[in-house]
Amino acid sequence: MAEQVALSRTQVCGILREELFQGDAFHQSDTHIFIIMGASGDLAKKKIYPTIWWLFRDGLLPENTFIVGYARSRLTVADIRKQSEPFFKATPEEKLKLEDFFARNSYVAGQYDDAASYQRLNSHMNALHLGSQANRLFYLALPPTVYEAVTKNIHESCMSQIGWNRIIVEKPFGRDLQSSDRLSNHISSLFREDQIYRIDHYLGKEMVQNLMVLRFANRIFGPIWNRDNIACVILTFKEPFGTEGRGGYFDEFGIIRDVMQNHLLQMLCLVAMEKPASTNSDDVRDEKVKVLKCISEVQANNVVLGQYVGNPDGEGEATKGYLDDPTVPRGSTTATFAAVVLYVENERWDGVPFILRCGKALNERKAEVRLQFHDVAGDIFHQQCKRNELVIRVQPNEAVYTKMMTKKPGMFFNPEESELDLTYGNRYKNVKLPDAYERLILDVFCGSQMHFVRSDELREAWRIFTPLLHQIELEKPKPIPYIYGSRGPTEADELMKRVGFQYEGTYKWVNP
């Protein structure tokens, strides 16, 4: 592979701008107003304001973009700056750019259920340069409990009458099928589907988006991507930290609602779906819905739930269990780990287990898709061969690698495990991989909904998990304890083995 010439960040961002501006969906010269509902909250200060700053800094926003914060707290732009700027990672050389960014910011205080507050917000936006005809993007960085009041008031008082209007809704989209349907029906009564952007930030990850290209742009994968060759698929999300004093919020939802029903299920769809007619948003989402419709409700015998306990040999936070978090209700049975087996009941995947695993306070930070292939028929190497695996590593250190057998150097035919490896950090030294939120917010500006969740996708996802969630809430089974920093409950490994996964433990990928 030829040595790549190092590029400056300015040059890299210039390439990104060229890609972005050559499309006809990006209205570079139009006025846009980006409204952050819930501007005083954690999500706004840690993710949304920093993301908008990065896009502005790199010249990736339309030229005439204004940012308006809205929340109940009586704040000023200076207050917003004070709480969000520490997350910007701005350099001293960017000081003038930073001043320009905050000059485009404003803030309006108001209630979430008060019509007069929204009329005041609308008047404020109209007073901005060309504000009355601007395109408006409303980001709901809010708890779902206020979605209905907020969307109703936005629709009645704050819509642009000339430009387009788009609304970005953060997960969780309800707690179960019934609450999700209620919320979807409410929002759909106010906005068209092409105006609604239900954001799952995992769909903005580079390697998640790469799944489609790997599958449908490489001839070698087509013939082997089926039940005849693939023994099982494992989708993993692991965090090495616990709730760390923020367990009160987590306890309301648990690990299945927080990660599995959305992030992991979306990745499953991209692995299992048929080739779409095109890369058009609805063509892709149509195929994802077909996959979900082929999955039956989760069966309790295919589920393992766990909850982390303190590690007596650990240090600091590792010595504390979930129930030691003062914000967690006493005696909570909320799971911090889950392993679930699903089956896609169609011709391509009949009988292939899709194993979804996620948890907190585990032994490493990792998100990946792992396809394990069947054993080689007619073994001539005296059971020395391990199964081939194709691994798409989402985070950290984005990579695609194939675990395969090669001859060990020497005189004899002794096979050993090795890999074919594409590590993004080595291959793409001159490429700026956008943060997931950067990519998705740019998608909203461009009107691309491919990486957002459609209402029928959402409904099918909740259909699969709601009976299990209701059973857990009714019966309150005690989750299996696992030690902070471990791989999780051993019962999860036993479940995976029972459905056909072979864990060798003899080879570990190392970032080159």
Rank of each mutant, 00 (worst) to 15 (best):
A6R: 15
S8C: 04
V12Q: 14
G14I: 10
G14R: 15
F21Q: 05
F21S: 14
Q22T: 06
G23K: 15
D24H: 06
D24P: 05
D24W: 02
H27Q: 11
Q28E: 03
T31R: 13
I35H: 02
I36E: 01
M37F: 11
G38F: 02
S40E: 00
G41Y: 01
I48D: 15
Y49D: 03
I52T: 05
W53E: 05
D58Q: 10
E63G: 10
E63P: 14
E63M: 08
A71R: 01
S73Q: 06
V77I: 14
E85V: 10
P86Q: 05
F88H: 04
P92L: 04
E94Q: 12
E94C: 06
K95M: 08
L96S: 09
F101C: 00
A103E: 11
R104K: 11
N105P: 00
S106H: 11
V108M: 11
G110H: 04
A115D: 12
A115P: 12
A116S: 15
Q119E: 15
L121R: 01
S123F: 11
M125H: 03
L130G: 10
G131C: 11
Y139G: 03
Y147E: 01
V150S: 14
V150Q: 03
T151K: 04
K152S: 12
I154E: 00
H155Q: 15
S157G: 13
W164Q: 06
W164A: 06
E170V: 02
R175H: 14
R175S: 14
Q178R: 14
L190Q: 13
R192C: 12
Y197V: 02
Y197E: 00
R198Q: 03
R198K: 01
L203A: 04
G204V: 01
K205P: 00
N210T: 12
L211R: 01
L211M: 13
M212P: 08
M212R: 00
R215K: 10
R215Q: 02
R215G: 02
F216Q: 02
F216K: 01
A217E: 02
G222F: 08
P223H: 12
P223E: 05
I224D: 04
N229V: 09
C232H: 06
V233L: 05
E239M: 01
F241E: 07
G242P: 04
R246T: 01
E252M: 10
E252G: 12
G254I: 01
I255Q: 04
I256D: 00
